[in-house]
Design a protein around this nucleic acid. Structure first.
Lengths: 253, 253
DNA sequence: TAGTTTTCTTGATTTGGATCAGTTAGATTT
DNA sequence: AAATCTAACTGATCCAAATCAAGAAAACTA
């Protein structure tokens, strides 16, 4: 009999049909028997520790990866050695999509905290999509969603101020946490100020100052990684957006 | 007998198998008989005039569009009325990919000059992809390519200076023209300084000044829309990249 | 072809955010 | 628990690019 306080590795190996992410992830909209077929090709490796790589730039592309628990950053290395963060990924979000066309990963992905990652061998996934129309459809949707999010981010970086960028970032995170069943107003950031700054095109000092300012303005309470949003509407107003619609609920079509 | 100086509309309605873009566009890597099946679902509408919309934000998504000749900008409208350019599209490039998942266009697309646009009804394309594995593969690649380009652009906007942005933009255009059989060093910009600035996150005055500076430095010759690159290596050096690899040649896999 | 509008260029000034520098407070190690 | 290390905060200064302001040159238009 095992110690009930120790979470066994096996418990992390949840089948797709029992996974809490099934409404966010690839299985969405699939018939139960098709979910089983998908499940059969998923590799569930042991959890990665903070700093471990899921994949690195220029590695051969074999699989897509889905975050099951934890969080991941993707980044590209600059010639000068510094890194440019290009994305943060929460449970249910997929990694490696940009590598399909080049057959090589165009960026690196490393986990920000202990994370469970599902691996989906792409050739097998592609075969399966050819024989399950709803899976093919879901994959097109997934790729499309990624493009939509990138486009939105492009618009943000192309135009807005530091204030608007950080506000949008926080609203985006809040919405994504909420959809995953976590609090929309009280959460921990798994990334550093430096990483947020890189992602938003700001210096880390600017990020830090903005957090302080947002707090002084009563919009939120922040203590290091711990953020509590106190005035969601006020924060939303700063984003100058109708809504931060990235990662919105996917209505089956 | 028709006037040989008048280009008839029929001549623009080239079948995919005779189209010069077939190595850049969806038919790439398809067997001839499959190209014919694809060809059968393509709608070839009459050319659009400068300023005409291909689609508008919030319109229902029915089709993807491919630029056959001319050029298109995609942009999103800001609450304050101003527009944010999110992309420029040359022949062989595809529009509307972000709408697959939402079933609504997330941005507007309008042509920058007289342009011929092929329309691909998405439901029929999806059906076809289900029965032609190489078409499914090509579509995944196409979506993936778009993600890769967006990611690259994100990295550019997240980090670099005005100089690096414009240099990267010009190198990107140059490479894309070259791949389409046009001169890599002598071309016309179909977009305004204002639109370039919007896309690159710069004021139009900054773009104008940079063109002047690049010219003073002997990197290029510019007269309004007409650009001639005189020192490709020098311009490349400003980008601080190994290579501007967006829109690279697609080796069949 | 003169008049109007739009686009582009150039100069002067301002400013948001970067950079530099130093401090503080957790976290980790010993 | 002291010592070390790292991430976060804050202040001072600087600068690249925005903004403001004309003017010039195309591109329409009547």
């Amino acid at each position: 009999m095992s110690d009930p306080n120790v979470i066994s590795f096996d418990k992390i190996k949840v089948a797709c049909k029992n996974c809490s992410l099934s409404t966010l992830c690839l299985p969405m909209g699939l018939a139960p028997e098709d979910v089983d077929r998908l499940d059969a090709i998923v590799k569930r490796n042991r959890p990665l520790q903070r700093g471990d790589h899921v994949f690195r730039t220029d590695e051969n592309f074999r699989s897509l990866y889905v975050v099951k628990t934890g969080s991941v950053k993707t980044y590209s290395q600059c010639p000068d050695g510094s890194e440019q963060v290009v994305g943060f990924h929460l449970p249910g979000e997929i990694l490696g999509l940009d590598a399909i066309q080049t057959n090589r990963h165009g960026c690196s992905a490393r986990v920000l905290e202990t994370s469970a990652i599902c691996e989906l061998p792409f050739d097998r996934l592609e075969d399966l999509a050819g024989s399950i129309p709803s899976l093919q459809h879901q994959m097109f949707r997934l790729l499309s969603k990624e493009i939509g999010q990138d486009t939105e981010m492009l618009a943000l970086l192309g135009k807005s101020t530091a204030e608007e960028r950080l506000a949008s970032f926080l609203m985006s995170l809040s919405g994504r946490f909420k959809r995953r069943g976590f609090s929309a107003t009280d959460f921990f950031l798994s990334m550093s100020r430096q990483e947020i700054g890189s992602y938003l095109g700001l210096a880390l000092e600017t990020v830090s100052r903005l957090f302080t300012r947002f707090q002084d303005e009563g919009l939120l309470k922040v203590e290091r990684k711990h953020v509590q949003i106190l005035d969601m509407d006020g924060l939303q107003a700063l984003t100058n957006h109708q809504a931060t619609c990235s990662d919105q609920a996917q209505a089956p079509s």
